[in-house]
Design a protein around this nucleic acid. Structure first.
Length: 138
DNA sequence: GCCAACGTTGGC
DNA sequence: GCCAACGTTGGC
């Protein structure tokens, strides 16, 4: 199982809407590196859901339910989408500032490659984020 | 609103 | 193939 982080601007597609929709096609990616990450996603992989711009925090979790296929919003065959299903709204969000202040999480690709909309997440990082956003289960 | 980082484009 | 100009993203 691989882990990822996907970004969405909350004014465009907040996690609240994702939750209502149940699932969505992750379209509009027009960056080759992000595209490569989409293509590397496998069925069942989990994606942290990050609100960029406003919020700047990890707010929940999505699951890959369909692997990469042609992006229907463009005729250019270079671009793909995956289908993501809503998995969870975290009991507590995890802010970018907290990540930057953390010895392990400050090394996340999200921070190193701040402009990429789809980035890989290491298992250790994923586990930490889950633990830190679920305080009552510690 | 500004700016840094980075990708893309196009002239040479 | 290099590099300057420009556009986009996103943090601050």
């Amino acid at each position: 199982m691989n882990y990822w982080l996907v970004k969405s601007e909350p004014q465009k597609y907040p996690i609240s809407r994702f939750e209502e929709d149940g699932s969505t096609i992750w379209d509009g990616v027009r960056n080759y590196q992000a595209r490569n990450n989409l293509q590397a996603m496998r069925l069942g992989d989990l994606c942290l859901y990050y609100h960029s711009n406003e919020g700047r925090e990890i707010v929940g979790l999505a699951r890959v339910v369909k692997e990469a296929f042609q992006d229907p919003t463009t005729s250019e065959d270079a671009w793909v989408v995956v289908e993501l299903a809503f998995e969870e709204l975290f009991p507590r969000p995890f802010g970018l500032a907290e990540m930057k202040a953390h010895p392990v999480l400050s090394k996340m690709e999200l921070i190193r490659q701040s402009r990429l909309s789809v980035v890989p997440v290491r298992t250790e990082e994923f586990d930490l984020v889950i633990r830190l956003t679920h305080p009552e289960e510690n």
